[in-house]
Design a protein around this nucleic acid. Structure first.
Lengths: 222, 222
DNA sequence: CATTGCATGTTCAATTCTGAACAGACGTAA
DNA sequence: TTACGTCTGTTCAGAATTGAACATGCAATG
């Protein structure tokens, strides 16, 4: 990677580098199903996942949930604190025992400044924005079955462990998938059934074996 | 507004202030239906709307469109350029004759730095992120009729001109509404019909007169 | 002021989706 | 090993949605 502008090629520190420089950053251990922060909290920290997995979700008053994203080891989340309100409007929940590093917005920004890492931070936010934008786009333009295929593929690529021609994905329930896709659980079960028959996935117990090539073919068909 | 931390209370410059300081910023006039930038462009500028209205939208290969947001005078858009790719994945299209100020990412960042306005920029990105996140949430958890009511209310509040108990909203077609809500045009027409009968809106020609209180009541009913 | 083009209004059969309900499978902790 | 709780599989009637088609209305243009 090289920067596109003509300045001296001092590589811009990554957000992980920034975390390494925060002297007072704290390690927090979170059990499965426990929240790192929850809607309404006035937590204003930024987090880096050392190990484990965290899901971001929002709940409506009527109890309907929406799963926004799943983050894994090495990823930074909690950037919603930069909105200046110090109030979370979504929850970050560990999907497995998880270890995170926490830095307060204040300390984090001080180190970003010292390390001249603003561009990394801006890029991070712009990428998150692009992710959400893509999610909106998919919800508006793609039918739910196809959307599920797309989500399975991206989760497999992001979180899956290689296993022959397959990628193993674990610990994602149909309920959670329905909260990403925007449909009901029985519907997810039915789609998974069809995907199984079409050879896009296999399942053993609660593990999903995704065949990425088959899914890509499925998505490429109109 | 005061900052929540304890530093000296020098107000942080707004993004508009930053634009004022960019010496080489250019004015660009765009006709209705013309794009400020389009998907695939390698434009990497940030824009401030002086007058007019701009919609952000994405199109799929199959020709389905998704309308992400509408921006109006005083608002900044184009922040997707901070992703470091200098490639647009969405289009920004003027909905009326529009005048924008443009600053290249590079120049803009230099002035942000000089003016110590990084916090404003971060806040801006975090707010955009929250907007998109809210859109995803609504698409996943709210039925389309209700979603339309919500969109009409927010557009009325943001873009509408006061008119007795109503807010006048103009130049938004059913087609565009369907691309926001994620449904078909006939469906929007039907919903609008119902809203008219229920007194939530009135229409005269292509102008929508939104009664904000009635819509709020409608949204408050479960 | 007629024409043209786009936007809204309307219909409908076919399809998809919801939500509730219940059965069976799996995994975990006692 | 058993009991329990959670997750998946399955069904289905009723409701909502699609997509195509056609009619009507409105406004700008020459």
């Amino acid at each position: 990677m090289s920067t596109t502008d003509g300045r001296a090629e001092t590589p811009i520190p990554s957000l992980r580098d920034v975390f390494d420089r925060v002297s007072t950053d704290a390690r927090v251990r979170v059990n499965a199903q426990e929240s790192v922060y929850a809607t309404g909290d006035d937590d204003d920290s930024v987090y880096l996942i050392e190990s484990g997995q965290v899901k971001l979700s929002m709940s409506s008053a009527e109890g309907k949930d929406c799963l926004l994203s799943i983050y894994t080891a090495g990823e930074v989340f909690g950037e919603s604190c930069f909105d200046g309100t110090a109030r979370r409007f979504e929850s970050a929940i560990a999907m497995q025992p998880t270890l995170v590093r926490r830095a307060s917005r204040r300390e984090f920004l001080i180190e970003v400044e010292r390390a001249s890492a603003y561009e990394s931070l801006l890029r991070h936010l712009a990428l998150r924005l692009a992710e959400r934008q893509g999610a909106v786009f998919d919800l508006v333009t793609i039918a739910s079955e196809r959307r599920l295929a797309k989500v399975l593929l991206s989760f497999a690529e992001k979180l899956g462990r290689s296993d022959g021609p397959h990628l193993r994905v674990d610990r994602i329930s149909h309920e959670e998938l329905s909260q990403i896709i925007g449909t009901t659980r029985p519907r997810i079960t039915a789609f998974m059934q069809r995907f199984r028959k079409a050879g896009l996935i296999k399942t053993s117990g609660r593990t999903i074996h995704v065949n990425p090539q088959r899914i890509r073919d499925f998505l490429a068909r109109d």
